[in-house]
Each structure stands twice: as structure tokens, then as C-alpha cells.
Design a protein around this nucleic acid. Structure first.
Length: 571
DNA sequence: AAGCGAATAAACAAAA
DNA sequence: GTTTTGTTTATTCGCT
């Protein structure tokens, strides 16, 4: 990529390091570099385009037949995409330069299209970090005079009197932990360790000075890497590096998710064990589960079994539920609010719940309803309901006394469950109206909530919820891609609305009336919500539950699960 | 801080 | 007489 003229970041750093250039010179240099880069990129781009066109031409000639529109349009599309890419690269570059502080662009100066970009690009955290870096600096200058030499509580050993950046290693570290302050300060750091010092070498970017002892390193740090333009610039560069890495990480995570989803394997990631698929959002579209291999049981090692699934926001891939495997009556449920909509989720994660000893994030009422609705007659005896529970959820194959009691309790308690005398005895049915009634309690359209909802239900047409969430957190606007487009999704809006109103707990709270019309929800929300099945009868879509029914046959044996309350309270 | 919904526990009764 | 099915009350907990 680099022509002899363009210097590499490393070289750049060295230049910076050696301070051979004055700030002015640097700036000039940088601008030149920048121009060069752009030029290069453009050249490459055009070259590529030409090659491509050439290729396509050849193809067309070969095929002879139809240089049809399709081809042309695809070609255009590809072209546009590339163009876009290049533009992005360019912008990124400019941005980088600016951000690195190597390019000091005054607000008014230059016609570079940076401004807007800058903002969107820098993750809040980084900005924050940077702020802290700079602030710390000021702050420290005050302190220094006093606690010079001592390792103040927060300066900790490594704290040399005055290098503001020092305390911020988090940033330079590449680690960039959220709360570096607390973390980096008190934390570990044995007497003579420093994030920037390892194996006798200064790890400051670009510097590899060797030191025999920690003290001399500190000295060096203070002298060579004090707070000055150079260090600042380097720090910025590092921030940039971190940011890039994070982006990369995010992408790779997404890829991983997609892969896992594709393979139907629940993440085996250390922490995040089996996760309910919905996080992974495999199929968003309510197509009934592909009937994939039924049992596909996950290893389900006891090691990381369950986590009371908190469906919440945190479902990020990485985060994983805080598994507290309490076997017992782990009381708390999953944050109720968001669970009602079962069906889609359930159908999608059916296998997961069938095999993983994870508590499903739905209320008993929802589950019962689901069970009943899934039955051909829309009615079940108590025992059949029990069976459904045990059949569908590994979790309910234990502690039977507990949850069965809960089931009965729920049947009796909620008006939505109606007992009907039958020839053979009594069966339970669902009064959907009643069921819908009870939901309108909570949330109105609180953004937070909505967010949760989306998260918990997670469905991104293409992206895993986790990814979306993380992206969102990083202020990376990718919803656009996801949400927009897809007409399918839009068509679902109505369904969504309904669900929002009735189905979702929160849903309609807002204007009781549920003026569906509005739904100011961001596109994303639609997506997420849409899948809700809530309604029993209507959209069979959600009711893909059907799927659920399918499998049922296989197991039927376990009723035997007897609980052992013994374990219940062990803890 | 209060109120609410849901989970859990348990007592009790009627039916099987 | 035991078990299952239902009903009801009380308590606890998470959330808004």
C-alpha cells in the first residue's frame, strides 16, 4: 500500500518521537501525507474499477447474450459500494489524522468534511477517556507539588510526579477499561509494575528503551514521555488504535455470532454458555423453526448451566447472563415485563430451552397460555400442562413440586385461565381477552423500555441483537442498515403495533387507547417487536409455535421428574 | 418510598 | 387413605 513516499504510522511515530520536527513542520508533513494517501487510494480505486469493468466487459462479451440490465445495475451497485468504501476510507483517514492531533485542524480551517464525522466516529468512551486524560493532567499538576515522590493512593507506585498520562494507562494500554480511574489506580499493580513497563522495556508506543530498574524507567517516562505535544499526539494515536481494534472486535464478534447461529451451536464462549438463541437471533423471520435437528443438545455442561436468563439488555454476546446457577427456587424471574411475547422467542429457542437447564424468561402465565394455545383444541388438562412444561423446558424437569404449584396457582389466580368442565374432567382454556387485559400496565413508551424489549426479543434481520446492542452502545449507527430497507419488516409494523398494545406488557400502556398510529419507535424497535406473537390466534406467524408442537412427540416420558425440594434451599 | 406484579410457599378443601 | 386438582393467603423480591 505504501509507496516510498508515504510513511507508515510507525515511521510517523518515530518522527514524532525524535522530535525532529517542529509542530509546524509536522503539520505540513502530515498534510502532505494525507494528500498522498488520498491520492493513492483514489488511484487504487480507479484502477480497481477499471479492472473490474474490464472483467465484466469480457464476461459480457463471452456470454454474449445479455449484458442485461441486471448486470449493469449490479455493476453500478458494486461500483457505488466501492465508491462508498473509498469515501469512507478517506474520511477515516482524515479523521484519523485530525484525531491524532497530528493534524490540527481549526474549526474554521480547511474545507475538510470532517466535523460531522469526527463526532460520529469517536466512541463516547474514547472521548471521555481523552477528556479524563487531559483533565487528569491539569489536576495532577496541582497535586504534584505536594505528593511528589510518594505514591499517593491513586497515583500508585508508578506514579511519577508528573506525567498525567501515566495514570491513564488504561488508554494507552489499549485496554481501555471503562473505569480506569478506579481500576487502574488502586488495583493490583505490584510495587514495581507499570503498564508501560515490561521486561525491562518501555512500552510506550514506539519507544523501546531498555532499563535496568524500575526507577530509571520512571525517570525515562517522565522525561521522555511527559505531557507535551508529542506525547499527546501519540496518545491520540493510541486511542485511534484502540478504537480500530474495538471496531474490529465488534465485527469479529458479529461474525462469530453469525457462525454460531449458522451452525446452530450455542456459544461456548467461556462465559456465555448456551444462550438462548434469540440473542443470536437466528432467524428473525417468523418462519417456523427449520425443523433442524431436534435434539441438538448442547453440551449443557453443568459447569455453566444456567443463568436466570435475564433477557435484558445485557444479552450481549459477551456479557452473558450472570450465571448464578442456583438450582433452587431461584426466585426472581426474568424481568417480567419483557417476556410476555413468548412465541417467537420460544419457537426460536425451543431447542435451547429443551436442553439447557435454563429458566425461560417468561412468566408462568405466559407459558401456560402458550401451552394451551399450542394444543389442537386450545385446551389442556392440568396434567397436560405439566407435561408441556417438562417437555419443553429442561428447567422444569426438576423441582416439580415448586413449579407445579406455581402453575396451579397461576391457573387459579388469573382470570385469563378458564376452567372448563369436560366429559373427561376439567380442562383449562385461555380467555385471550382477559389475558390481553392484564398486560396494559407498565411502561409506556419509555425509550429505555423499548430498548430492553428490543434487546430481549432481539431480532435483527441480519445482526445479532448482541451486536446491535453493542453497536448502539458505541454510538455506532448501524441500525440504519438493519432496520431500514427490509420491506418485510415494514409490513410487519401493524403486527408489531398490535403486539405492542396488547401483547407487550408495556406496550400499550401509553395511551391506553394505544393509538397505534403513532408508534414513534425507531425502526429498530419495530423490528424487534414485530416478532411478538402475542396474539394467540391472529397472526399465525408468531404462532410459529407450531413448531413447538411438532416436536412434542419425542419426549413424553418425563413426568417423572420429581423434584427434590431438597435442593431447593440448600443455599 | 410506595405500589405492583410475579414467584414462591403453604394451608386447605374437594375430587379422583 | 392417598394423590391430584384447585383455591386462597401470605411473603418476598424486582421493578417502576
Amino acid at each position: 500500500m505504501m509507496t516510498p513516499q508515504v510513511i507508515t504510522p510507525q515511521q510517523m511515530q518515530q518522527i514524532l518521537q525524535q522530535q525532529v520536527l517542529s509542530p509546524q513542520q509536522l503539520q505540513v508533513l502530515l498534510q502532505q501525507q494525507q494528500a498522498l494517501m488520498l491520492q493513492q487510494q483514489l488511484q487504487e480505486f480507479y484502477k480497481k474499477q477499471q479492472e473490474q469493468l474490464h472483467l465484466q466487459l469480457l464476461q459480457q462479451q463471452h456470454a454474449g447474450s445479455k449484458p442485461s440490465k441486471e448486470q449493469v445495475s449490479t455493476q453500478q451497485l458494486a461500483f457505488q459500494q466501492q465508491l462508498l468504501q473509498v469515501q469512507q476510507v478517506q474520511q477515516q483517514h482524515l479523521l484519523n489524522l485530525q484525531r491524532q492531533g497530528l493534524l490540527t485542524i481549526q474549526p474554521g480551517q480547511t474545507g475538510l468534511p470532517l466535523h460531522s464525522l469526527t463526532q460520529g466516529m469517536i466512541p463516547a468512551e474514547l472521548q471521555q477517556l481523552w477528556k479524563e486524560v487531559t483533565n487528569a493532567h491539569v489536576k495532577e499538576e496541582h497535586n504534584n507539588s505536594s505528593d511528589n515522590g510518594h505514591r499517593g493512593l491513586d497515583l500508585s507506585s508508578p506514579a511519577p510526579p508528573k506525567n498525567p498520562l501515566l495514570n491513564q494507562h488504561a488508554s494507552t494500554n489499549g485496554q481501555y477499561m471503562g473505569h480506569k480511574r478506579e481500576a487502574s489506580t488502586l488495583e493490583e499493580l505490584p510495587p514495581h509494575s507499570h503498564p508501560l513497563y515490561g521486561h525491562g522495556v518501555c512500552k510506550w508506543p514506539g519507544c523501546e528503551a531498555v532499563f535496568e530498574d524500575f526507577q530509571s524507567f520512571l525517570k525515562h517516562l517522565n522525561n521522555e514521555h511527559a505531557l507535551d505535544d508529542r506525547s499527546t499526539a501519540q496518545c491520540r494515536v493510541q486511542m485511534q488504535v484502540v478504537q480500530q481494534l474495538e471496531l474490529q472486535l465488534a465485527k469479529d464478534k458479529e461474525r462469530l455470532q453469525a457462525m454460531m447461529t449458522h451452525l446452530h451451536v450455542k456459544s461456548t464462549e467461556p462465559k456465555s454458555t448456551p444462550q438462548p438463541l434469540n440473542l443470536v437471533s437466528n432467524v428473525t423471520l417468523s418462519k417456523s423453526v427449520p425443523e433442524s435437528s431436534p435434539p441438538l443438545s448442547l453440551p449443557q455442561t453443568p459447569t455453566t448451566p444456567t443463568a436466570p436468563l435475564t433477557p435484558l439488555s445485557q444479552t450481549h454476546s459477551v456479557i452473558t447472563a450472570n450465571s448464578i446457577h442456583s438450582v433452587g427456587p431461584m426466585r426472581r424471574r426474568y424481568s417480567e415485563k419483557y417476556n410476555m411475547p413468548i412465541s417467537p422467542d420460544l419457537s426460536q429457542n425451543k431447542e435451547f430451552y429443551m436442553n439447557a437447564d435454563v429458566r425461560p424468561p417468561f412468566t408462568y402465565a405466559s407459558l401456560i397460555r402458550q401451552a394451551i394455545l399450542e394444543s389442537p383444541e386450545k385446551q389442556l388438562t392440568l396434567n397436560e400442562i405439566y407435561n408441556w412444561f417438562t417437555r419443553m423446558f429442561a428447567y422444569f424437569r426438576r423441582n416439580a413440586a415448586t413449579w407445579k404449584n406455581a402453575v396451579r396457582h397461576n391457573l387459579s389466580l388469573h382470570k385469563c385461565f378458564v376452567r372448563v368442565e369436560n366429559v373427561k374432567g376439567a380442562v383449562w382454556t385461555v380467555d385471550e381477552i382477559e389475558f390481553q387485559k392484564r398486560r396494559p400496565q407498565k411502561i409506556s413508551g419509555s425509550p429505555a423500555l423499548v430498548k430492553n424489549i428490543q434487546t430481549s426479543l432481539g431480532y435483527g434481520p441480519t445482526l445479532s441483537v448482541a451486536f446491535q446492542a453493542s453497536m448502539a452502545e458505541n454510538n455506532i449507527p448501524l441500525y440504519t442498515t438493519a432496520s431500514i430497507g427490509s420491506p418485510t419488516l415494514n409490513s410487519l409494523s401493524s403486527v408489531i403495533r398490535e403486539e405492542m398494545n396488547g401483547a407487550m406488557d408495556h406496550g400499550n400502556s401509553n395511551g391506553s387507547d394505544s393509538s397505534p398510529g403513532r408508534s414513534p419507535l425507531p425502526a429498530m424497535h419495530h423490528i424487534s417487536v414485530k416478532e411478538e406473537p402475542l396474539d394467540p390466534e391472529d397472526h399465525e406467524g408468531p404462532l410459529s409455535l407450531v413448531t413447538t408442537a411438532d416436536h412434542s412427540p419425542d419426549f413424553d416420558h418425563h413426568n417423572d421428574y420429581d423434584d427434590n425440594q431438597s435442593q431447593d434451599d440448600m443455599l
